[in-house]
């Protein structure tokens, strides 16, 4: 991989409008039962403008944006289609709520090699339409080198 790419910032993604039904679909998949994800009145009782997304929801946005970054030809990752997640962090400024229109800006934070496989770390910043910082994610993926890399 091209270590000279570390620090590279990719253009912000197209705006993503967070829909109520998408939040519920995601909440059902992770078995999130909190009423603030399901019921607008319950969310408002907690001070939110609408139902809010479960805490791991921003991965819906960051995964695609980071996946695109893995395919950056300048990076030169070995086999971009076989990768697994090794680490993930999200730090929030405020919860994501239905109606938010979010963009993701991805920065390549680091590259490494473990067991013959490429390892990449991205930092992704989510912002609302008015520029407000919503949350920041940090993702580490192992990209398998089919020519003999070890599966952890």
């Amino acid at each position: 991989m091209n270590e000279g790419c570390v620090g590279k910032v990719y253009p912000p993604t197209a705006p993503y409008e967070v829909g109520r039904e998408k939040i519920k679909e995601f909440a059902a998949a992770v078995r999130e039962g909190n009423a603030a994800c399901w019921d607008t009145e319950a969310a408002r009782a907690l001070g939110y403008p609408d139902i809010i997304a479960p805490p791991s929801f921003p991965m819906v946005l960051t995964l695609e944006a980071e996946h695109d970054a893995v395919h950056d030809p300048e990076l030169g990752a070995a086999n971009q289609n076989r990768f697994v997640h090794r680490e993930q962090r999200f730090a929030y400024n405020r919860p994501i709520h239905a109606g938010d229109v979010l963009t993701v800006t991805v920065r390549l934070a680091g590259v490494d090699s473990v067991g013959g496989n490429d390892v990449v770390t991205y930092e992704s910043t989510l912002k609302a339409a008015d520029g407000e910082h919503v949350c920041t994610g940090r993702s580490t993926f192992v990209i398998f080198n089919q020519e003999g890399g070890d599966v952890p």
Binding site: N34, C37, Y48, I52, P54, Q88, R89, F90, A91, P95
Partner: peptide
Amino acid sequence: DAGAVVDFG
């Protein structure tokens, strides 16, 4: 509160 977890990794 689904908004209570503010930082995790």
